[in-house]
Design a protein around this nucleic acid. Sequence first.
RNA 1: GCCCGGGUGGCGAAACUGGUAAACGCGGCGCCCUUAAAAGGCGCUACUCCUUAUGGAGUUCGCGGGUUCGAGUCCCGCCCCGGGCACCA
Length: 829
Amino acid sequence: MSGYEPRAIEGKWQSVWAEERTWEVPNPGQPGFDERKPKAYVCEMLPYPSGEPHVGHLKCYAVGDAIAHFRRRQGFQVVHPMGYDAFGLPAENNAIKTGEPPRVATERSIESFRQQFRSWGISIDWSRELATHQPDYYRWTQWIFLQLYQRGLAYRTEAPVQWCPKDATVLANEQVVDGRCERCGTEVIQRNLEQWFFKITDYADRLLADFAALESWPEHVITMQRNWIGRSEGAEVTFRNNEVDLDFPVFTTRPDTLFGATFFVLAPEHPQLEKLVAGTEAEAAVREYVDRVGRESAEERGAEDREKTGVPLGRTVVNPVNGEEIPMFVADYVLMEYGTGAIMAVPGHDSRDYDFAKAFGLPVKRVIEGTDPEAPGDADGLPFTGDGPMVNSGRFDGQGNRDAYAAMVEWLGEEGRGKTAVNYRLRDWLLSRQRYWGAPIPIVYCDECGIVPVPDDQLPVELPEIEDYAPHGQSPLAAATDWVRTTCPRCGGAARRETDTMDTFVDSSWYYIRYLDPRNEGAAWDRAAAAHWMPVDQYIGGVEHAILHLMYARFVTKALADLGHLDVQEPFANLFAQGMITRDGAKMSKSRGNTVSPAEYVERYGADTARTYVCFMGPPERGGDWTDEGVEGVNRFLSRLWRLCDEVAERTGAGEVPTDVEGEARALLAKAHWAIDKATKDFERGFQFNTVIAAVMELVNDCYRLKDAIYGDPEREGVLRHAVVVAAELIFPFAPHLASEVVERLDRARVWERPWPVADPVLLESDTVTLVVQVNGKVRARIEAPAEAPQEDLLALAKANENVTKYLDGSEIVKEIVVPGKLVNLVVR
RNA sequence: GCCCGGGUGGCGAAACUGGUAAACGCGGCGCCCUUAAAAGGCGCUACUCCUUAUGGAGUUCGCGGGUUCGAGUCCCGCCCCGGGCACCA
């Protein structure tokens, strides 16, 4: 007898797996590739290597590994790779502080991650390992950039951008949260800069449409992306200013309210503003207003309950539907980024326009009948945003507003003053960063030729070593003058390199394809290899990437497919978004001091315990609170299984498993097969790992309860031995080391080489069932009844029960419901 | 404000298509083992009440209605918590 010592067991099996390269899977055409097996690509989001892995990583990879193991044993050829999202700001910020090159700190972290992942016993195909900061990886990131560039999907333009003064870089829209930098929390300001963009907006409709092509994604992730893309249908209608002779198209989702437009508003950034007011009385006031707005942060400007402000321009536009001249304003509630940067204002039927009209004493005109009971105080019940018949709208009067909508757009079209239009909230992907630690954008600027892409055969454009990592308003790379100075690939003349690097989301938008052919030096991947493995059958990661990473990856996949490099339109067929682990009910953070170091727990309890625990906490898509007592509970369970194995190995001999046993042995055999059935179903039904583990706990508990009645009879001992092996086989996806040891000791076999166990349907059937007897829906008795008994017998049994008769006496049975195998309900009056 | 999740014992949770609410784990209580403790094993544990006990009754799945022989599960209305979006025209 010996206690459960995970360290010895885990070390032993990790060595076996490493030496035998157990989890390596070849590509089609390579030796060892098994053509008969269906493929399964299981992939967790690659980690950003900073410091050490935390519990979020533990959970992600424990969940992913359980799926990988389950699929393998179901007969799939599973590719399950690992890599590192190695470029990024934290390493660079650290470099600025300490002077340590980002590469050094990053590679140290990678080593620490790699060690810990190995110590967790995750079944990774290490031959496919990659890191995005390595030149042989980012060479292809650059190649993808150039592919998109040649397709017209990458472009450079001056644009007002969100600038983080602290990180001294631009941020993508997605990286600005509540007007603050997502990373450092600094308030973001607007600047006009030349920037590189990917034209993701070209793909907006396809990104929406192809949700239908996904097998299984969490509904809320799809909803978040849909909201982010923000497609709205409406009309573009042109208002004309005759004084300066300018057309102002507007986008509206409510063309039915056109007759209700009583004024017109331009965003402070609107490019025509200058022309409209130059040399007029309004000029000074407008300029002052625009300046003031420009100084305000996005957060201030977007604040809730912000008072409506604005300045009249002293100009008018003509409403194309009725020829009315309505006054123009500039106001900051109109955003340049959305639509055309100009709106027709319909205060009668839009609450924002209504607020502005009230503040400036402008007329409010009703064009749809109806009243909003919660309208903010106007006696007429305006603004009204519901549906109703049209009024004050000329020829459209009397029509329902929904009908008028279509009729109005059609009529405008005929007149050439409007057309149906679609608008998106989604902006193009701003990918350039004025930072060092990223993949250089492979572009050269030549005085003669202009923007010149670096030819493929000159890739990678390697990131040079530099001394000073601090940003000075431009990329630190600008200071690497020898590197910047180059020759033009087109004319051979003097040229300089682009000094911006790429957003790290570019690196992580395609790594799952590189995994499939990671050492290919002649191409980013072999198309046949990608065709075989793609799409990722199961992708796993945190919800925090629901929008950014997942949408970028979807876009890049589609673009690459359009370019003929890929055969799939969607990268991730099934997505699993894991919930966050908290401690003491709060998000873990160093400042709170409530972090959990997986390494510590692996050291103390073993990897099997740590992995099983995070899968047992609750449904993995939900979060959970980490408790040491919970960890100990799981450790206790694994110890119990271990001691059981120890005892059974000593006291019983290996032999055939009899199926025609009775009594305790029969009960245990039935329990084992019940557990197989339950575990298999719960695995397949989703990710109900907590109940899979609970089923194995039940089986182990039964082994303990029944074992003393079983010892002594070789036949029945065979059943016990079998039950313990089954428990080990079922717990294997979570506790692979312990399971491997148990199956080796009891069955001299390698558990991972065995197919997943299959429940014997005969053993799932029971001779008797517990019959619930209800009277008027209340449970009055539970009786054992033969499983095959006909309904009449069940009724007779029910009525014969002493406790039931109490409730039947003196009453008349008006209805009898019999659910075979479940219950009898007697309705009395 | 709009759109998603979620409210079940002291706690994490379970309950497949409407059919035994609370499996499994934690915590708690009791017993066994032990010179003793730790570890371990066994049992009890939703709440209230009756009963010496076996057993029995009533009440519970956020709140209020409804459908049904029967509702944690379906429908309607409301409350609370978490997340996303938010002056998007």
